[in-house]
Design a protein around this nucleic acid. Structure first.
Lengths: 338, 338
DNA sequence: GCGCTTCGACGAAGCGCTTCGACAGAGTAT
DNA sequence: ATACTCTGTCGAAGCGCTTCGTCGAAGCGC
């Protein structure tokens, strides 16, 4: 493994000059730079990350705590990851994933404490997330995707569920639907006041009320069989229903089965609109799904930018809510004529 | 941030003694060790990873190249990750995930070249995978989950598809089924001779032939809609079929729809057996799915062990094929009486 | 031609740890 | 008592970089 000293020798310059061509922190003449670059290419030189990190007191690595349990569909998380990776690279940082679940903050404390990353991104943040304290306790900056009950002046990026559900109700209202139900996340999430579930429900109720409609919310476990069960019950007990808003990735697939079994053709007899799902997931559905796209890549990107502001001592943006874009496709249509 | 020197001062010993209590590479008396540990606790000392890596020429980090595109279901990959994390920790290593797709070996070369990890694990290895050369070109050991056309004496851990399909056919044969089809991965994968698809198909054909049965294989894109389409066609064109072996995670869900639409009750009228899927995925099915469990955690574990053998200069195991365990549940049953 | 600034390059001092050689003192064998 | 081996500890030399202070050589106005 060639070192910077080898490069310097071959190029006939001093070690520090090589360093400066690499970091750009001091000017280097074009001629010298060319010689150095030639030498680096010839030797196949690569900076030794540990040495760099030690000397510069910066690893140029950002870590994203990546849950490995209970992640049935990778697409949603991966959208975020891709946005984050991109933003990090643009700023000369690498993003790595730490496979750590929310239940093991100690692992996070250990990892962060060794200073293997300059900052940590937390995804799927719970209302009272012990990981934040763990990371901050060892003096490492962190940013969250989602947000805690009281984020203070921390950096966070969340989805604008209020806007998303307003858009959803309005889209269906515009198509003539007057009986629109909302299939939410699990009761357990509601019971613990999990932000997305609560905020989406409240926004849905508000939007319905505003249009003079009766809201109808059902909680549903995050699995296809649960979606099928809940969907079937819902269709049986509310025969006047013509549209369903679903904010539950996995239940969505069960809902499709329930509709088929109830002999309802989509969108002729019934409309389905998914909220806050990744585009990849919409493509797994029977037919082109009408959906409000979760801003996954942007969430990742913005969270990284905010984290870098924190790391590099710039003033931070605080929190941001990101809108979901409506993609009306083939599962929403005009209300059926009776 | 307390350094080892701070700990040494507080404990009244030399820096090197602190190091030796941490690494255990030289004996330290119980009394001294106790003083040092007390000092470390008091100062909240944590080893600086970069300094350690630089001095020891070892990062104690293993990287797993983690694809973020085309991963609809995270469960399968995550099983592997969990096994790998566990095995790494047992040996005093941390596992991190590098979000790098198979299509960008250069990123991998860059990352590995900076020596931020002592070894790299590759998952979803293709027959001719450019990532292997990329990692090895910078002198970093690597191990694969799956395997290339010609793995040479590299370390790999794969699924024993021959055994899995033999088990599958035998399970159904035992239940009296004589008309058993096999729903494979995509035609594209078969065309490129992708190992799992080819080996599974060949093993299925062999097992069927051995029992004097006619094999019937269909390729299917890895999406639920494709599974529904192919499933529907298959059921329509082969009315005598009583069982289907599926080795296609996502198509599986489409197959469920196809069966329901064809008014076939499972397992009364028809049996479905999934091959090489993660247990989490089996739980997403309508009813308790009969399946051959992919040995994900064991794949991760063994791959890590093999990689560590390589890194620490022990003799390596070469390749290993892991068996899938049969979990007969509620989607396979006796052949229906005509 | 003088002193002035500016540019580009150099040398050396660390960053926080591991590890090697050395060595004092206790234990054992002679 | 002598010579020897262990144990447990210390000091110092790096690991491969970044970065600070420094300084020669141009380039400039007058």
């Amino acid at each position: 493994m060639a070192t910077m000293q080898d490069v310097a020798n071959l190029a006939g310059v001093s070690l520090s000059t090589v360093s400066y061509t690499l970091t750009g922190k001091r000017p280097v003449s074009a001629a010298t730079r060319a010689r150095i670059e030639a030498a680096m290419a010839e030797l196949g030189f690569r900076r030794h990350a540990a040495a760099r990190a030690l000397a510069a007191r910066r690893t140029h690595v950002l870590a994203l705590a990546y849950p490995t349990y209970g992640v049935a569909l990778g697409a949603t998380l991966n959208d975020i990851v891709r946005g984050a990776v991109e933003a990090a690279r643009e700023s000369g940082y690498e993003l790595v994933l730490w496979p750590v679940d929310s239940t093991e903050p100690e692992v996070l404390r250990e990892l962060a404490g060794q200073r293997t990353a300059d900052g940590v991104l937390l995804m799927e943040v719970a209302l009272d997330d012990p990981r934040i304290e763990a990371v901050e306790s060892v003096g490492v900056p962190c940013a969250m995707i989602g947000r805690t009950q009281d984020p203070g002046d921390r950096v966070w990026v969340d989805i604008d569920f209020e806007d998303a559900l307003t858009q959803a109700v309005e889209h269906l209202w515009g198509l003539g639907h007057r009986s629109i139900a909302f299939l939410n996340r699990s009761q357990a999430q509601l019971d613990t006041h999990y932000g997305p579930a609560v905020r989406a429900r409240d926004a849905y109720v508000a939007a319905m009320t505003e249009h003079g409609l009766d809201p109808l919310t059902v909680a549903c476990d995050v699995t296809p069989p649960a979606g099928r069960r809940v969907g079937t019950e819902l269709l049986a007990s509310h025969r006047d229903l013509t549209a369903l808003i679903v904010m539950n990735e996995l239940a969505l697939f069960g809902v499709a089965s329930a509709l088929r079994e109830a002999d309802l053709q989509v969108p002729r007899d019934f409309s389905v609109l998914a909220v806050a799902i990744a585009e990849d997931i919409s493509q797994m559905y029977d037919r082109p799904l009408s959906f409000l796209a979760a801003p996954g890549p942007d969430q990742g990107r913005l969270a990284v930018r905010g984290l870098l502001d924190l790391i590099e001592g710039r003033t931070t943006t605080g929190g941001t809510n990101l809108r979901c874009a409506l993609h009306p496709q083939s599962t929403t249509g005009p209300v059926p004529v009776p």
